[in-house]
Nucleic acid binder design. Structure first.
Length: 690
DNA sequence: AGGCCTCGAGTTCC
DNA sequence: CTCGAGGCCT
């Protein structure tokens, strides 16, 4: 990029005063932009702004040599990009630990004081946690040179062209002495009012409406055509810093924010410097009570140790700073009406009641269904058809009916009645005395729902991993009686597939090659894929490890099976019964005949592995390893990967956006590793063993 | 027998 | 994520 396009203007005869006028217009427009977007205080009427803007556009068009990269006219956006390129952040963009109640915050404050070995109250900078997208802005010599999304924290996407259209973001910092390089971090978002206007426009144009301001902001920023982004009124607030060269780091977070404000970078006014845990909680209360009145959505507040030296002393734990925490507002709840209660039949025949809800927005998405788990749960919550209920997204993901609003129950409300016959196959629904779950008695043979569930399980990623075999496809194959058992899948040909809806040659070929690819598998996956009751992934792995060969497992007695770790009488009997059934044995033979194969070994391996007996729990997203890859490494070293944290857990491996498991691990004082720590540990022990 | 810990199974939405 | 239930330890 050429920093100075003014260089040759003097050569143009008579253009001196044009250049002066252009410079003046730019300064004037930037000043009004700043007043409007940063100070939130318009300094001239919109029409006047537009007149000045158009005059500048005209001048620049007539004299292209006057064009400067920081001209306000350069915000309008250019031609579409082919795609976004990846950018590696000079300093990683971390996420924050979360606190949900006062206790979490008091504990945070205690950890900070302990970390600083301080008895006095700690000074904190408090601010809002915006519901938008984290962005890194790189300024070199005061000029915005590029912008990137947070991405996974290490690498994001280059969205410079789109960010240039955000009028709240200065293209040039307002200072004569800018730092050589500065990475300014903050949140791009859409104000509630702008979101409402956008959705109104989308609706009129017959286009899809956005679910919430955050999605709208994200969608706008990911536009390949920045001319569209330019029409989307995005906003920006800065709250952090990455790389800084050619200037001293301010001594506190508050000083950093003040510096930003002086540079013309928008910072939110809802911030404070407070003392101690009491100060934090006061701020939380104050913001909570005006949350709905704010022009934008927030999902909590953020506390940071104010002094830079304190921050440095506290450092980081597993990719989250120890000196900061986000205090989240409680999950949002909404009221809606139960329009009906249907039942779903799972692969084991389990009958699950599901509430059909009048669509309602909860914590950012539209909810239409909520599981009621089982009959007892329906009774416990006393949910009836026609009831008004309060819905929440449990853990901010899965919709859950919290309670009914009894005073809103209509007189004609209908209680839920567990059907007597399976709605799919007509077989009786039975419920064992001591079980909470009612089941369709039709089994795999009679009940199409169970066949579908069983096949979906068979093809699933953690089982045979047959790509492209989705729910739609399986539904069709079962409904048209093309496929009954898993073995039938491997008999599919192009002609059979061609008869299905939405299945052209190309996709049919893909399905066939995915089936072919799945034939090379492992014994553990194969056992898991069979869908034996009480045999999930962990048990399948243990069985494969213990018996080594499928034939040995198939002929194992209940006593043999009970020898296996974690297998008691119930699971042993279930496995025995499965393999005693001639139909199961036939299925296994057909699958083997179809070419499914794996490598077998001689029963229990006696080699003692370095991580034998150690239990790991993975949480959050790791920077480079996938969950599966990390689990494989751990298991390779003889360790086990469990799903939840307890005092038996040896290590917790935490990545980005680690949630409750990380909190629990901290509570129990369990060793917490990040990805690098895990790799080091496995490598270390590996070397010791050699 | 009781309590803790895991595992299995089912679920939602994009 | 949640619930239910099996397995194992005390």
């Amino acid at each position: 990029m050429q920093p100075d396009l003014f260089a040759n203007t003097s050569q143009q005869a008579g253009s001196e005063h044009v250049a002066q006028r252009a410079t003046w217009l730019r300064a004037e427009l930037n000043r009004h932009n700043h007043a409007y977007y940063v100070l939130d205080h318009p300094s001239i009427p919109d029409a006047e702004y537009d007149r000045l803007f158009l005059e500048l556009v005209g001048l620049e068009r007539a004299h292209p040599e006057l064009l400067a990269p920081d001209s306000p006219t350069q915000r309008v956006g250019g031609a579409p990009l082919p795609q976004f390129e990846q950018v590696t952040h000079a300093v990683p963009m971390l996420s924050l630990g979360n606190g949900f109640d006062d206790e979490d915050i008091v504990a945070f404050d205690r950890r900070v004081r302990e970390g600083l070995q301080l008895d006095d109250e700690v000074e904190y900078a408090t601010e809002l946690k915006f519901d938008g997208l984290a962005i890194n802005l790189r300024y070199e010599d005061g000029v915005l040179v590029h912008a990137a999304t947070r991405g996974d924290g290490a690498t994001g996407e280059n969205v410079t062209a789109n960010i240039r259209t955000v009028r709240a973001i200065p293209l040039r910092l307002q200072t004569a002495t800018p730092p050589k390089v500065i990475d300014i971090r903050g949140e791009v978002m859409m104000f509630k009012a702008d979101f409402a206007k956008l959705n109104a426009r989308q609706r009129e144009a017959g286009q899809k409406e956005f679910a919430n301001p955050r999605n709208a902001a994200a969608g706008s920023l990911r536009q390949l055509d920045s001319r569209i982004t330019a029409q989307r009124s995005l906003r920006f607030f800065a709250y952090g810093i990455g790389l800084l060269e050619g200037a001293d780091m301010p001594a506190s977070h508050a000083a950093l924010m003040d510096w930003y404000a002086g540079l013309g970078v928008p910072v939110c006014v809802e911030r404070a410097v407070v003392k101690g845990a009491a100060g934090l909680l006061d701020f939380y209360q104050a913001i909570g009570s005006k949350r709905n009145a704010l022009a934008y959505e927030i999902d909590g507040v953020v506390y940071k140790a104010n002094r830079l030296q304190d921050q440095q002393k506290l450092g980081y734990v597993s990719r989250a700073p120890r000196f900061a925490i986000a205090h989240k507002f409680p999950a949002q709840e909404a009221m809606t009406v139960v329009q009906g209660i249907d039942v779903q039949i799972g692969r084991t025949g389990a009958v699950t009641p599901v509430a059909r809800l009048a669509p309602v927005a909860v914590a950012g998405v539209t909810v239409t269904n909520a599981t009621l788990h089982n009959e007892d749960e329906v009774r416990r919550k006393d949910v009836q058809i026609g009831d008004t209920v309060i819905v929440r997204r449990a853990g901010d993901v899965i919709p859950e009916i919290v309670a009914v609003v009894p005073e809103r129950r209509p007189t004609d409300a209908q209680p839920f009645v567990m059907p007597v016959l399976c709605p799919i196959c007509g077989s009786p629904i039975v419920r064992a005395e001591d079980e909470a779950v009612a089941r369709c008695s039709g089994g795999y043979i009679k009940c199409a729902a169970q066949r579908k569930g069983g096949l979906q399980h068979f093809v699933s990623r953690r089982a045979m991993d047959i790509e492209g075999m989705g729910e739609q496809l399986i539904d069709q194959l079962v409904d048209k009686n093309i496929v009954t058992t898993a073995a039938d899948l491997y008999r599919l040909g192009l002609t059979a597939l061609a008869e299905l809806d939405r299945m052209a040659d190309k996709s049919a070929q893909n399905v066939l090659s995915a089936l072919e690819k799945s034939k090379a598998t492992t014994l553990a996956r194969f056992i898991y894929a069979l869908g034996i009751r009480h045999v999930g992934e962990a048990t399948a792995k243990e069985l494969a490890r213990h018996f080594g060969k499928l034939d040995v497992l198939m002929d194992a007695s209940v006593e043999d099976l009970m020898e296996v770790a974690d297998i008691g009488p119930v699971v042993a009997l279930s496995v025995r019964q499965f393999f005693a059934d001639p139909l199961s044995r036939e299925l296994v033979e057909q699958l083997r005949a179809a070419g499914i194969h794996w490598s077998e070994h001689e029963g229990v391996e006696k080699v003692v592995k370095p991580m034998q007996g150690k239990t790991f729990v993975l949480t959050g997203t790791l920077p480079t390893l996938t969950r599966d890859a990390a689990a494989e490494m751990i298991e390779h070293a003889g360790g086990k990967v469990a799903g939840s944290v307890s005092k038996k857990t040896s290590y917790v491996v935490a990545g980005e956006e680690a949630g409750s498991k990380l909190a629990k691990a901290q509570e129990l004082g369990i060793v917490i590793l990040d990805e690098t720590g895990l790799i080091e540990l496995l490598k270390e022990v590996h070397e010791e063993n050699h």
